[in-house]
Design a binder for these strands. Structure first.
Lengths: 106, 106
DNA sequence: TCCACATATGAATTATTATTCATGTGAAAT
DNA sequence: ATTTCACATGAATAATAATTCATATGTGGA
């Protein structure tokens, strides 16, 4: 059944379909951060952040670089910015009242 | 933990993180189709197609209109086109060799 | 070297989603 | 009005993914 973009889209969107990872990306859109900073900002355990950073890294949605004992993560603004913008536009234009577009709301 | 775009992104990307739904969208990017046409094109059962059309419809990623006893589904080109384009661009630019960007490949 | 900090990993458990199969519903044709 | 086509829905099972907790690794400082 697999055609064209489907496999890569599946991989990417699966990666993006998790609230922890999305919140992480949202944070990183503001500024690069270390794992502990993310954990604190999101109120999550460090191990959970690490687990969730990994797939984002593998897909190159984020990148990292060492700084002392810390590791600083940065978001891929080009891709993630574009995706968020599309989502925002869609939500505004096609789901103005939220309605069925939002989970559990019907 | 939920901030800004995270909930709506979560809803949208969860919706898009399924191979059947993605393949459906890919089909519909070519032309509007009925449920049975989709089922045949994708080699899937009709009930599965119907189940998967529903969330796409709820998020307005597709729309439908009746035509006799059939129901014809059309894709939201604006949103889905933009998303696919972003994915394609990202894959080309940041995952040129596939590598870890593709599931199971490491 | 030894300790502490920062992060990563493994494995088990839990939670979420997908798929299947049976059946329901509505609309047009006979 | 009954049959058939086209599609939708429900509920159970199966598949996949997320989270937690324990522990490992690696790096710099005392």
């Amino acid at each position: 059944m697999k055609k064209g973009l489907t496999p890569i889209c599946h991989r990417f969107f699966t990666n993006l379909s998790n609230p922890t990872r999305l919140a992480t990306l949202e944070q990183l859109m503001n500024k690069p951060m270390s794992v502990n900073e993310l954990a604190e900002a999101l109120g999550q355990e460090q191990s959970m952040i690490s687990h969730n950073l990994k797939p984002l890294l593998q897909c190159n949605f984020i990148s990292s670089e060492k700084e002392g004992k810390k590791r600083i993560y940065s978001v891929n603004h080009e891709t993630i910015g574009a995706l968020f913008k599309t989502v925002e536009n869609h939500a505004q234009k096609f789901c103005p009242t939220g309605g069925k577009c939002l989970k559990g709301e019907n």
